[in-house]
């Protein structure tokens, strides 16, 4: 019996059934189908919410491993990470956040710690992008020249001094985006959409099974 339950065909059938019901409910007006699809999508959200501790468990596994092995130069930071993480969770629970509550400590954590560090780390990319831009934007041939010119038009469109130098940068930038870029990206979008639809059909039909490799 357990051998039958372990077969990969079971999750494939689940995927196919669920996928077909959800897709058909959009195109076919049939009340039992609609309500089944609604139930399925609401269950999907509940399953995602239930998985909230998976990332937490994984993080604990990785960092506890480093602490136990006393990895040089790494384990003190792992210890601090676990202390800070559980400290944040305890403060959040004490503030009553899952029940709609809050307190100053919770607000302090996300306003002055979470926000500032995450935004600053993200802004580091700005420095690397500027360095990369200086090296990448070279007009080696016609195509890279077009790339460079369109980038410059948008730079002038975006900065106040650009439209101050010449007011025409605003409508020119609008035209480059709303006509030239729209056409190019629409072609890309159509290609991606066809790819997405064919990939979805392949998964629902059980041909693509990459998402099942976890069970191996």
């Amino acid at each position: 019996m357990s051998d039958i339950l372990k077969r990969k065909e079971i999750p494939i059938v689940i995927t196919a059934f669920v996928g077909i019901v959800v897709i058909l409910s959009y195109f076919v007006t049939f009340d039992p189908l609609q309500s089944t699809a609604n139930t399925i999508t609401s269950w999907g959200a509940i399953i995602v919410a239930s998985m909230l501790f998976i990332g937490l468990i994984n993080l604990c596994q990785v960092h506890l491993n480093r602490i136990m092995k006393r990895e040089k130069g790494v384990w003190p930071f792992s210890a601090w990470l676990l202390v800070a993480m559980f400290g944040t969770i305890i403060i959040g629970l004490w503030a009553g956040v899952p029940w709609g509550g809050t307190n100053d400590s919770w607000v302090f954590i996300y306003t002055y710690i979470n926000t500032s560090i995450s935004q600053t780390i993200f802004s580091l990319f700005g420095f690397y992008v500027i360095s990369a831009t200086i090296h990448a934007l070279k007009a080696r041939n016609l195509e890279s020249g077009i790339f460079l010119i369109s980038s410059f038009i948008i730079f002038f469109w975006a900065m106040p001094v650009g439209t101050y130098i010449w007011a025409g940068f605003s409508p020119l930038g609008d035209w480059v985006m709303n006509v030239l870029t729209a056409g190019a990206y629409r072609g890309i979008l159509l290609g991606i959409s066809l790819g997405l639809i064919s990939f979805g059909i392949r998964v629902i039909a059980g041909i693509e099974r990459g998402y099942l490799r976890r069970g191996d």
Binding site: I134, R140, F155, P160
Partner: peptide, 30 residues
């Protein structure tokens, strides 16, 4: 933030133009 944007982009574009002029001044292939 808008004023700072102008100056940073302006500096960036001037640098890119200078790099390109330098690139094209050198023998083909840079």
């Amino acid at each position: 933030g808008a004023d700072a944007m102008s100056l940073v982009y302006g500096l960036l574009m001037v640098t890119i133009v200078a790099v390109n002029i330098n690139y094209w001044r050198k023998p083909r292939g840079g």
